[in-house]
């Protein structure tokens, strides 16, 4: 039998932001579906707060509210008549009701920047980016301690992407939740992630800080991935003989490095 995912073993600390990268079909989505018990591992265990999530199979729905999972294109799962009702679906399944439920929804909405008047609108009247935000709010409303995103910015314009990334970091600041993001954007990963998991053909090949992961550009290219564009530009500069650091992964780091270089040149 073919294993979709194998040899995957890692620990994630509370409050960390973890990025998962890998080529299409490398098992990223399968991996994250194990984290909240949508899939049951045929071998091995998934531990959450030192307990096997499958220890009590009947309680798996409780695990799903503690470990939230936002699927790709989550806006396609909207179904309620109003934005409010759709965000309330998750918390309602957890057993919240009445005032508690209402507070939960309005808090989440304000955290994510959904205006009050939007709550009574139909989710199907919203724009693509707004729908995505409402759908993400639907998972965040359960207040998961770990929240997993499968390509949260796929199919959005640059502004939409920025908004979604902001929501994710806002949620983390507000709740100190652990965040796991699958992404194809090396730039986003470099800017956000504390550590990065690199998957290839269903196996975990690297699990390290962005600096160390992006330092092995050759190995990444071999498995169909790449380093951030700025890192490539700086590698080109180094090849031309410009003395810049190889550890430049984000635009702000690049600006800093260039300013330093210019000042250094002026001093000399």
């Amino acid at each position: 039998m073919n294993d979709a995912v194998k040899n995957v073993s890692f620990d994630i600390n509370q409050g960390e932001i973890i990025g998962i990268i890998g080529h299409t079909g490398s098992g990223k989505s399968t991996l994250v579906q194990h984290l909240n018990g949508l899939l049951k591992p045929t071998e091995g265990t998934v531990l959450f707060e030192n307990e096997d999530i499958w220890k009590n199979a009947k309680e798996i729905r409780k695990i799903r509210s503690k470990i939230g999972l936002v699927f790709q294109y989550p806006e396609y799962q909207l179904f309620e008549e109003t934005v409010f009702a759709d965000i309330a679906f998750g918390p309602k399944n957890m057993g919240l009701s009445g005032e508690e439920l209402e507070n939960c929804v309005t808090e989440t909405a304000s955290l994510i920047g959904i205006k009050e008047e939007y709550l009574q609108k139909s989710p199907f009247d919203l724009s693509g980016g707004e729908k995505r935000r409402v759908a993400i709010a639907g998972v965040m409303a359960m207040r998961p301690k770990v929240i997993v995103f499968d390509e949260p910015t796929a199919g959005l314009d640059p502004r939409g992407r920025e908004e979604v990334m902001k929501i994710i970091s806002d949620y983390r600041t507000a709740t100190n939740a652990t965040v796991i993001i699958i992404s194809h954007s090396m730039e986003d990963m470099a800017a956000l992630a504390d550590r990065i998991i690199v998957m290839n053909k269903g196996e975990l090949v690297l699990f390290d800080t962005p600096e160390k992961v992006f330092a092995s550009a050759e190995a990444l290219r071999e498995i169909g991935l790449d380093v951030p564009i700025v890192t490539r530009v700086f590698a080109g500069l180094r090849a031309m003989g410009v003395a810049v650091s190889p550890n430049v992964f984000t635009v702000s780091q690049a600006v800093e490095a260039l300013v330093q270089l210019k000042e250094g040149a002026a001093d000399a």
Binding site: L38, R61, F71, Q77, F79, F89, G90, N93, V139
Partner: peptide, 29 residues
Amino acid sequence: MNAQKARGADLESGGLVDRVKALIPILIP
């Protein structure tokens, strides 16, 4: 189905009426 399960939807238990009701979040999308 997976997405709604991730939001805590219960598709596997309950009586007939509950089960039919649980289909709404799947059928509408």
